[in-house]
Design a protein around this nucleic acid. Structure first.
Lengths: 248, 248
DNA sequence: CGTGAAGTTGAATCACATCAAGACACGTGG
DNA sequence: CCACGTGTCTTGATGTGATTCAACTTCACG
């Protein structure tokens, strides 16, 4: 199987100090020494395969998870069956914060591709946050940021047209990739069209149609799940205002 | 102006220990002694008049606020002008948590009626949360709960019909009043129809029409801003499933 | 009382959903 | 390597719930 070297590097990867995400992740503001303490509470998890759940709706809340590689989606199912996709998670983002309150996870989180995460038991994180003010601040910030993002999402869902939603969605992804050191112009969607539609409150068909139209207008080039943003400025305009002219 | 007695009782009111909301509010889990410490950091604020802002979008973040009486709305304005109402706040609820991250408030918060709040400077709250684990836990929970509520709102905005939105809205209010010791059946809306519409992602006219219809179906009785829930069960059904039969 | 804001109601329009059918991509077993 | 089947995606035709526009009514407040 794995050679000693690759095993070693795998182990190595689970160290925050050498993790390429450390500048975005929870231990962001910690001194080297404090980071050791933080690392001590983190648990490794076997990589999740595509479609495999990290946890399920209703499971008792024990840990939050930092995404290391790959991506996940969060969905909540209501009595009547239909479920709502409430979030996508990319590397360095924190999963499960909405479970603290009721001590169970309010939604299921499932891997969209092969995904690795760091498990951070919450009780230990909480007590460590007592000693490390920077860690506490960072935790407050993570939650606060998620609140802010949620507000933006509400605006999107209640005021924006389908075109604006798709444009915003692509821009948000682009920006998230950029921050992580990847190209903001060219990336791969790890989620299906149906997921995008569910997330944005649109029918799959609408997602497909609008992507085709954007492609026709040479704003993006889409091939399957590969996306190329051709005209970032135009896409930005599409996201905020309703396009005034017709083809131009 | 105020008699010594009323001034005294006003002062009295600002003590958590005698506040009727203490079982719902932030110091919920604190011992008497710890509550003294908590109270020491709270600042009184002059009551806000209807329409008066608690803070404005973009103001630097300094404090979170606990609503003591009255109610407020939070709105965020985007470049193009149109603004989105993202939340209503009732007594015991915590305002401003989404400002921690960027150190400025991402939206304006305005009183819907005469409203009093407790100002809690965040830096002091943060350091106090170092010493008082229960306070810290409660703060994490408040934020977590708000995240959870946001998810529910997203579901409402992206999957529910106008009827379901209105029904859900009324039920949520009803439940919040109930938890605060008021009648869940009979209450007064402090917000205008336009606010409700904005919040729920509906046109004012739609809100009005549907309330009229609910009234015709004898699910609720609405007179101006006074609401009476006549058939709670039916309203609950309306909120989750699409009504199957027509009039029945 | 009068005046402007807030709320209601009706009719026409539109953006998106739904229904339906076909194209494509991909993994699996022959 | 191909045939097959299944799931994902695209495209077109039609239907509909909510918006928009417009007019009217009611309410709150000086």
């Amino acid at each position: 199987m794995a050679s000693p070297v690759s095993r070693r590097s795998l182990l190595h990867e689970t160290r925050c100090q050498t993790c390429s995400l450390s500048s975005l992740c929870l231990p962001l503001a910690l001194e080297l020494e404090d980071m050791d303490h933080f690392e001590a509470i983190i648990r490794r998890r076997a990589p999740l395969k595509k479609g495999e759940p990290l946890f399920r709706q209703g499971d008792t809340f024990t840990s939050v998870y930092a995404v290391r590689s790959g991506s996940l989606k969060q969905t909540t199912t209501e009595g009547n069956g239909s479920d709502q996709l409430t979030n996508f998670y990319l590397p360095s983002e924190l999963v499960g914060l909405d479970g603290i309150d009721e001590e169970r996870y309010p939604g299921s989180v499932v891997a969209l591709e092969t995904t690795t995460v760091c498990e951070i038991p919450f009780d230990r994180l909480d007590s460590l946050s007592e000693e490390l003010p920077e860690l506490r601040t960072q935790l407050y910030r993570s939650m606060s940021k998620e609140l802010r993002d949620d507000r933006r999402m509400m605006r999107l869902l209640s005021r924006k047209t389908a075109d604006q939603r798709l444009a915003s969605f692509l821009l948000t992804l682009s920006e998230r990739f950029r921050r992580r050191g990847y190209s903001p112009y060219s990336f791969r969607l790890s989620m299906a069209r149906a997921d995008i539609g569910n997330y944005l409150g649109l029918a799959v068909e609408t997602v497909s149609r609008i992507l085709s139209r954007f492609q026709g207008q040479e704003v993006v080039a889409v091939s399957g799940r590969e996306v190329n943003i051709l005209d970032m400025q135009r896409l930005t305009r599409l996201a905020e205002e309703e396009e005034l002219g017709a083809t131009r």
